[in-house]
Design a protein around this nucleic acid. Structure first.
Lengths: 220, 220
DNA sequence: CGGTTTCGCTACGACTTCGTATCGAAACCA
DNA sequence: TGGTTTCGATACGAAGTCGTAGCGAAACCG
């Protein structure tokens, strides 16, 4: 019930990801190492359960069973429900600043493809957005989702809108926040309503952008 | 867990609402009549709980306690969780066809005011949208919400968009469904993100309409 | 090999939830 | 008054959940 304070109890360190040159030795701990496969299985099960079955079906026991893992193995990594969800939420965090793709719609399409593609890499493709929405519906998790996911996504979209203004594709008077509301809101809305094939929702963001530009822009 | 088949087990009949002229006598039943105040208290408590505390805190016992009512009194009316939520959902159903307010933005503002005003009448003002979103996040309830709430609202918004086209405010080529996505999606998105004062979200729909019109319309 | 940690599994106590049953009291009608 | 239904309160069995603890086995290191 505690809102996932995200304490560093046991972050699944890659133990050697960037430890090539700097810092002391990765401090190889004695004993059997933690299974990274279990990490993935647990996170994946958590995602699947909350996204597909809903908050009602989300329990630590169900996660463990779905992941084919003992309950102990789950609690050793995340000591409560909130922490586990918080960790899974991290998968939704968008990547760094977007690269300039040349035009407003191209930027949007690149962003959409990046989001969808990243999700597809994890093998959980279409579950992530629904997962985010489900978490957003929970009053305890909402602040976390807004801070870690919605905020960063909005920042990226705002940057894309600002670029459009700089390029002269959008009129300078455009309300950036409102434009972001339209872009992100409509995308999430479609994810929310779609019963299947969530992947498509992201991809249509470019078409959305065109409609908005023809509105927000001044072709004359 | 059953998705609220909405059987007519005991619909809280006003018992005399439209029974002035037509039909046989309202069939006054013997015994103590059901308390309409209990009806309102239960529905209100259900709304409050799901909207404010979230799906996790929603239990029949919590509803009964919040309503200051015995559990029996709840189950006598709605025999399961799903049925109760389904009934509360009914409060979100938009009214009939909207009246022509003269312009696209006026139509939108009238619609927004109608939605907000109706909610305010029930004394539950800002809770209803959040309640809808919370219910939308539940896989079991989503189809119900879409059918009874989202669909009708979309129909109204589509009608408003079509009127805008007929009036020449919007270009004839406008994709009505996409425009509705933008209007409804952005509105729901704002409700979803707002931590407080949900009432404002509906009211800004007119401003949203203006932005869209300047995009969707052809001023040249 | 011993030492250490994680593995999956099972069981535990405390708690909550569901939906039902029972209780005496209250509210209505004939 | 008697008959009927609802009222709030309480208790119930069955089921699920949380987070912890113990088990023997496996996986690593020195």
């Amino acid at each position: 019930m505690t809102p996932a304070s995200a304490r560093g109890s046991a972050p699944p360190e890659p133990a050697g990801a960037a430890g090539d040159v700097a810092g002391p030795a990765p401090a190889r701990r004695p004993g059997r190492p933690r299974s990274e496969q279990a990490d993935r299985a647990i996170l994946g099960a958590a995602l699947r359960l909350l996204a597909v079955e809903g908050a009602g079906a989300f329990s630590m026991e169900a996660v463990a069973a779905e992941a084919g893992v003992g309950k102990t193995t789950v609690y050793r990594r995340w000591s409560s429900k909130g922490e586990l969800i918080g960790a899974a939420l991290e998968l939704l965090r968008p990547p760094g600043p977007p690269e300039d793709a040349g035009s407003f719609e191209a930027d949007l399409e690149a962003f959409g493809r990046g989001q969808g593609g990243r999700a597809r890499d994890t093998g959980l493709a279409d579950l992530l957005p629904r997962f985010g929405v489900a978490a957003l519906g929970d009053p305890e998790l909402r602040p976390l989702v807004i801070e870690r996911v919605v905020g960063p996504v909005r920042a990226i979209l705002a940057e894309i809108v600002r670029r459009g203004i700089d390029r002269g594709e959008l009129t300078p008077g455009v309300d950036v926040e409102q434009a972001v509301d339209l872009l992100h809101g409509t995308t999430i809305y479609r994810i929310l309503l779609s019963e299947t094939d969530l992947g498509g929702a992201d991809r249509t963001i470019a078409a959305l952008g065109r409609t908005l530009r023809e509105g927000l822009g001044n072709p004359g």
